[in-house]
């Protein structure tokens, strides 16, 4: 995913802010530390935003407008802007505007606070971000985009029937077309299913297969420079889908931060081959 000032990349977060994300889970089994899913998401999103500024936008003591950001929370009955007070008219903010919205908390910049409440209007959220994505591609036809969807929603309760699922997949396809697009999708479910992380094959089950279909593969540059790419101890291959289901807190956190690695700004361009030199 290329990100330059002429063709900035759009990073969109769609975060489930429902009441259920307030439940605690064990984040460090050895030390017995617990925190809410919402706190895990909040911390990881803030870290990902920080990393985007540090690793992509900051060059020669200036913040370059390489990353446009849209951060939305699906909560209660509505989808709302997640950082700062005013929702941007365009649906996203350029780097020099969103980067400066951070508040310094304990030495770390913090943009996003998540207070769980209400239900999850996830479908409304997806419709909203795909509409923003469409506007963005119209304004920047050469640009790349990444959508990070984070949810613990129960799809049975959300009434995702087959028709809805097909319409959703079609909406994503028609919005994105052949453009550069990455969809990272993390679903934490209370159904007790076995974890499914970065699958290569399409899983069974209506919900899992829908989320698999909506997620994309990771950009090829992520596999350059490493012979055994992995994330949180899980091996990645170029065919792996950017989809995790019922991952533990560490992997969820790493997946969210993965967002800052997907965007290729001034990053390294090493090659996946060993250096063989003869003197």
């Amino acid at each position: 995913m290329k990100a330059t000032t002429q063709s900035p990349a759009l990073v969109l977060f769609l975060v489930d802010g429902s009441h259920s994300t307030g439940v605690s889970w064990v984040t460090d089994a050895k030390q017995g530390t617990e925190e809410s899913i919402a706190t895990t998401i909040e911390t990881a999103v803030n870290r990902a935003l920080h990393d985007l500024v540090v690793n992509v936008c900051y060059q020669e003591s200036e913040i370059c407008n390489r990353i446009s950001l849209g951060l939305y929370v699906a909560q209660g009955d509505s989808v709302s802007w997640g950082i700062g007070e005013d929702s941007p008219e365009a649906g996203w903010l350029p780097s020099d505007q969103w980067a400066t919205l951070a508040q310094q908390v304990g030495g770390s910049p913090r943009w996003f606070n998540l207070e769980p409440q209400g239900k999850t209007p996830l479908l409304k959220g997806w419709n909203h971000v795909y509409a923003i994505l469409s506007e963005f591609y119209t304004e920047f036809p050469q640009s790349s985009a990444m959508l990070v969807t984070l949810t613990d929603g129960s799809f049975k309760e959300l009434n995702f029937d087959e028709e809805t699922i097909n319409e959703l997949k079609e909406l994503q396809q028609s919005t994105v077309g052949e453009r550069s697009f990455v969809h990272l999708l993390a679903h934490i479910s209370a159904d007790g299913d076995e974890p499914l992380v970065f699958p290569i094959e399409r899983p069974d089950g209506a919900v899992s297969s829908m989320l698999y279909d909506l997620s994309t593969t990771l950009p090829s540059h992520m596999f350059e420079g490493s012979q055994h790419p992995s994330l949180g101890g899980v091996s990645l291959s170029p065919e792996s889908r950017a989809y995790i289901h019922n991952a533990d807190p560490v992997l969820l956190s790493e997946m969210i931060q993965l967002g800052s690695r997907v965007v290729e700004g001034n990053g390294s361009r090493p090659l996946p081959v060993p250096i063989i030199e003869e003197e």
Binding site: V54, C57, Y58, E60, G107
Partner: peptide, 16 residues
């Protein structure tokens, strides 16, 4: 010292 938020080290980001 410096950085994008003025609270870290100042740096230049190279490719490698």
């Amino acid at each position: 010292k410096g950085g994008p938020f003025g609270n870290s080290l100042e740096y230049r980001l190279g490719a490698a």
